[in-house]
Design a protein around this nucleic acid. Sequence first.
DNA 1: AATGAGGCCTGGTTGC
DNA 2: TGCAACCAGGCCTCAT
Length: 293
Amino acid sequence: MPELPEVEVVRRGVQAHAVGRVLAGAVVHHHRAVRRHGFGAADLAARLVGRRLVAARRRGKYLWVDLDGSSVGDEALVVHLGMSGQLLVQPSSAPPGRHLRVELTFEDGDPGLRFVDQRTFGGMAIQPLVPSAAGDTVPAFVAHIARDPLDPGYDVEAAVSALRARRTELKRALLDQSVVSGIGNIYADEALWRARLHGARLTGSLSRPQVRRVLDAAAQVMTQALAEGGTSFDALYVDVNGASGFFERSLAVYGKAGLPCPRCGSTIRREPFMNRSSFTCPRCQPRPRPARR
DNA sequence: AATGAGGCCTGGTTGC
DNA sequence: TGCAACCAGGCCTCAT
């Protein structure tokens, strides 16, 4: 599942293989992949023809490519990988595969850039670049997304304050992209384990050092994952060349139910969380008592 | 306003 | 063997 490290790996691939080149065309094979582009598939394709890709950027799990400049008023091609999206650098002769959603071709020929997405939670759209609250220029979709821990402009003390201001459970707050971005279910569980905090703890009950500890842990675990090419459980996450990442072997708790905690040896448990799962160590991360009122 | 629940999707796995 | 239920989960929309 692409979270910040996985999206960053893809961004680097797009930067290396596509930036600087001029688009020749775009073929939308599945309308759902462009549903967030409000003007239809034909409009998106037409607007991309002849545009030069200027820079590949990212905030949290959002990826975008600036088109023909990067100032306010210009446009960007925004891509979100969702759960299973991939951007693949492939020649037009490569077999399309059954999940090919959008194909981008270039004036200089092969290779092209293909958006492949099994579960179609991802997609792309052309968005105007607008000023963000953070003082920079981002696509309109991204204006509400907070800076992520790998952003040079990330302010951890501001993030601690924002997280503690929320009145909810810690893991919910970590997954809220408007508080701190880039963290998904995998890295949330890993960060909570490293910080020895249970995700059901209420944000209002945590000290600043505790919140700082979990945010620092999130930054560290995502930095390490990036260095190992990201986390690949299956073929659904790969880089632009189709290669898997290796961080799965470094996970401490995510997906490890029934296995020993690497720190204390207790058996990792799986708990329901928002119709999904959380993985915790029962000894390192004691569940909080139910709130009284 | 802020928070939380529901819905969107497909393919692999599990259980009967 | 076949079928159904379940599971993965980011983000948008809607309700409270």
